[in-house]
Amino acid sequence: MERTIGGTDVRGVAIDADTRCAHYDTARDVVAIRAACCDTYFACHACHAAVADHEWRVLPRDAFDDPAVLCGACGATLTVREYADCDDACPDCGHAFNPGCKRHWERYFGAR
């Protein structure tokens, strides 16, 4: 499934209008991540595994200043650095992000 959020296409499984998916669907699960392997936004790593035909590749550290995180609430894109510094809320619209997502940091962005 694919949805366009704020002009950005997001892929995944059962994505709602705010990028929640079949795997993560709380009120705060409104972040999509750009996969380095295919330069495509996915609602989560499990969505990528379900719909892509290749392995996930983390964003390299030299791409941390490029757009890589999408707020599903407003469609704003953030760099990895902006996401890391945002205190679990979108800097554009203030919508809360799931603080638990940072437990998956290495899966999306590699070692800190």
Rank of each mutant, 00 (worst) to 15 (best):
M1G: 14
M1P: 09
M1T: 14
E2Q: 13
R3Y: 11
R3D: 12
T4V: 11
T4P: 03
T4W: 02
T4N: 06
I5T: 12
G7D: 06
D9L: 07
R11G: 03
R11C: 07
V13G: 05
I15Q: 02
D16Q: 09
A17M: 06
A17I: 03
A17K: 09
T19R: 04
R20K: 13
H23C: 11
H23T: 15
Y24I: 05
Y24N: 08
Y24S: 04
D25N: 15
D25S: 15
D25T: 13
T26E: 08
A27D: 13
D29E: 06
V30S: 08
V31M: 14
V31L: 15
A32V: 10
A32R: 09
I33G: 00
I33N: 00
A36D: 06
D39F: 04
D39T: 09
D39E: 14
T40K: 06
Y41M: 04
Y41F: 15
Y41Q: 13
F42D: 06
F42V: 10
H45R: 09
A49I: 03
A49K: 10
A49V: 09
A49F: 02
A50I: 09
A50L: 05
A50M: 06
D53Y: 12
D53N: 14
D53E: 15
H54T: 06
H54Q: 12
V58Q: 10
L59H: 02
R61M: 09
R61C: 10
A63N: 06
F64S: 03
F64L: 11
D65L: 03
D65M: 02
D65T: 10
P67I: 04
P67L: 06
A68T: 07
V69N: 02
V69S: 00
V69D: 01
L70I: 05
L70M: 05
C71M: 14
C71K: 12
G72K: 06
G72H: 04
C74V: 14
C74D: 14
G75E: 13
G75A: 13
A76P: 07
A76K: 02
A76L: 07
A76C: 04
A76Q: 11
L78R: 01
L78Q: 04
T79D: 03
T79S: 08
T79Q: 00
V80I: 13
E82R: 00
E82C: 04
E82F: 00
E82M: 04
Y83F: 14
C86Y: 00
C86V: 01
D88C: 00
A89H: 12
P91H: 07
P91D: 05
P91W: 05
P91L: 08
D92L: 05
D92Y: 03
D92E: 09
D92H: 07
C93F: 02
C93H: 00
C93Q: 03
C93G: 02
G94F: 11
H95W: 04
H95T: 11
A96V: 12
F97M: 08
N98F: 02
P99M: 10
G100V: 09
G100W: 09
G100E: 13
R103V: 05
H104Y: 13
W105P: 10
W105N: 05
R107C: 12
Y108E: 08
Y108D: 08
F109H: 02
G110K: 04
G110D: 06
A111D: 04
A111E: 13
R112A: 01
R112M: 01
